[in-house]
């Protein structure tokens, strides 16, 4: 995205110091292998450029698969995206029929009833309280071509975050049981 901004010729601000670079900050990183449909980036610019003009400049030079959707100005005092935008809405596409959908829904109910999810990270087990880290019960929707959409919200805090694959592993018992086609973060927000 830094290269998109440079190509757009917007008057970006450069940091002071030994290694000068464009002043910008990303929101929480996407897990590896996960798509994103509405990611956020803060960029500092030195002159006022009308929003529509800035958006057009960025749209013209963004890769087709990484389009810039919207631009807005924020107050300088706004907290960083890492701090403020902790709610990630995911959509997972699975190959599944109605029977599998029922299995997944039962697994969701069971998982929520258990109240927590144990995840191994770098050799250590960490327990996630689902009332804090999972926004609501995952929803399922059968689509055409034997595809199932599974939607859920994961919440990050200063102590960590669940990754979508942690939840999928828990729902399937082991990873290969769910035939995942794609995982996409469709929204990153500051509230549910």
């Amino acid at each position: 995205m830094e290269r998109v901004v440079r190509r757009s010729q917007l008057p970006y601000v450069i940091t002071a110091g030994f290694s000068a670079h464009m002043k910008h900050a990303f929101g929480p990183a996407l897990p590896v292998g996960t798509g994103g449909l509405a990611e956020l980036l803060d960029v500092w610019i030195s002159d006022y450029i009308p929003v529509s003009q800035a958006l057009q400049s960025l749209e013209e030079v963004a890769p087709v698969s990484l389009p810039v959707i919207a631009v807005s100005y924020i107050e300088k005092s706004t907290p960083s995206l890492q701090v403020s935008h902790r709610y990630s809405t995911y959509e997972v596409l699975l190959r599944a029929d109605a029977r599998k959908q029922a299995d997944i829904e039962r697994a969701c109910t069971g998982l929520l009833a258990s109240g927590s999810l144990a995840v191994q990270r770098k050799g250590k087990m960490k327990n996630f309280d689902l009332s804090r880290y999972l926004g609501s019960k995952p929803k399922t929707e059968l689509m055409e071509d034997d595809l199932l959409r599974l939607g859920f919200v994961l919440i990050a805090d200063e102590n960590g975050s669940l990754r979508p694959e942690n939840l999928l592993d828990a729902l399937s018992g082991y990873p290969d049981r769910l035939d995942v086609v794609s995982i996409t973060r469709v929204r990153l927000s500051d509230s549910l």
Binding site: V32, P63, V180
Partner: peptide, 19 residues
């Protein structure tokens, strides 16, 4: 190919669509 990407290191190696 796409369904394999979540099982491999650096899936960005295989996705194309760069500027």
């Amino acid at each position: 190919v796409e369904p394999l990407l979540r099982f491999v290191e650096r899936p960005s190696r295989y996705i194309n669509h760069e500027y």
